[in-house]
Computed example of a mutant assay.
Amino acid sequence: MFIRTASERDLPAVRDLLVETWHATYDSIYGHERVTEITDDWHSIESLAARLKRPNGEFLVADDGRRLGGMAFAAATTDPKVLILYQLYVRPAFQGRGLGKQLLHEIEDSFPDARTVRLEVEQANSEAVAFYQANGFRPTGDTVNCGGSTFAIPALVYEKRLD
């Protein structure tokens, strides 16, 4: 797998990766119907295209030439020292091989002025929580509206210092 910046032509494959990963991860937490509703909104081609064009953002994919194994999207806040990691997903068949860590490091390297990375993670997603903790993130709070108020999803807020 090599990590590269995503392009418009990647968006259908990114959507497929996200839908597969979300159902594998969240169906047991939220149910299949709700996960479909969330992915149809958050991971629509239009939503992904908006992220691709976001100023001060980086949208990465892990590609082996045949299929995408993972993706990550982050953007600097109005304070360039604070980076928000909005998405980091690895296709289930590629999990446990270090791909998530590679994506995370590439995102961090893409923002040389950043000193803090912040993210939200579903508490019931124990594998993601363990991944972030193993990669230096520490809990700093929680939210009741992960990803916005549309779906009212509670989540933990984690941060990692980069300096």
Rank of each mutant, 00 (worst) to 15 (best):
F151S: 12
G65E: 07
I29R: 01
R15I: 05
A62T: 07
A128W: 08
V19M: 03
A72I: 10
I84K: 09
D109Q: 13
K53F: 01
P12Q: 00
T140F: 05
F131Y: 04
P12H: 00
F94R: 02
F2R: 06
A6E: 04
R66K: 13
D113K: 11
Y30H: 02
G57C: 14
A114M: 08
F94I: 02
F2S: 02
P139L: 14
K101F: 09
R51T: 05
L60H: 07
A114T: 13
F59H: 08
K53E: 10
L85W: 05
N135R: 01
I45L: 15
G100Y: 12
Q102P: 00
S44Q: 05
E58F: 08
F59C: 07
R15K: 10
E8C: 05
L60S: 09
A72T: 02
A134V: 10
E37L: 00
Y30R: 01
T140K: 08
D27F: 06
K101I: 06
Y86S: 09
F131G: 10
K101R: 13
G96P: 08
A74M: 10
I84M: 08
R138T: 15
A155L: 04
K53N: 06
A134Q: 11
A6S: 07
H23N: 11
P154K: 13
Y86E: 11
L119A: 12
D113L: 14
S44I: 01
T78Y: 07
V129W: 04
S47F: 00
S28R: 04
A24L: 09
A93G: 03
V61R: 03
Y26S: 04
G65K: 06
F131A: 10
F2Y: 09
V117R: 07
M1L: 13
T77Y: 06
N135D: 02
W22K: 02
A152E: 12
A24K: 01
Y158W: 07
A24I: 12
F111D: 08
E120K: 03
Q95M: 15
F111I: 13
L119Q: 13
A128L: 12
I153Q: 15
E120N: 04
D16P: 00
A62C: 08
E37P: 00
D10Y: 04
I45N: 06
L99C: 09
A74Q: 03
I107Y: 03
F111Q: 09
A50D: 10
T36P: 00
F73M: 11
S149E: 15
A134E: 10
F151R: 13
E108R: 05
I107L: 14
T25Q: 06
R66E: 11
A50Y: 00
G69C: 06
F73D: 04
V144Y: 10
I29T: 01
Q95I: 12
L48T: 04
I107T: 08
L18T: 03
D109K: 14
R4M: 02
G136L: 14
A114D: 05
M71D: 00
Q102W: 11
D113T: 15
L60P: 04
R97Y: 13
H43T: 08
I153G: 13
S126N: 00
V14F: 01
A74P: 01
T5E: 14
G31R: 02
L83K: 01
Y26Q: 02
Q133D: 11
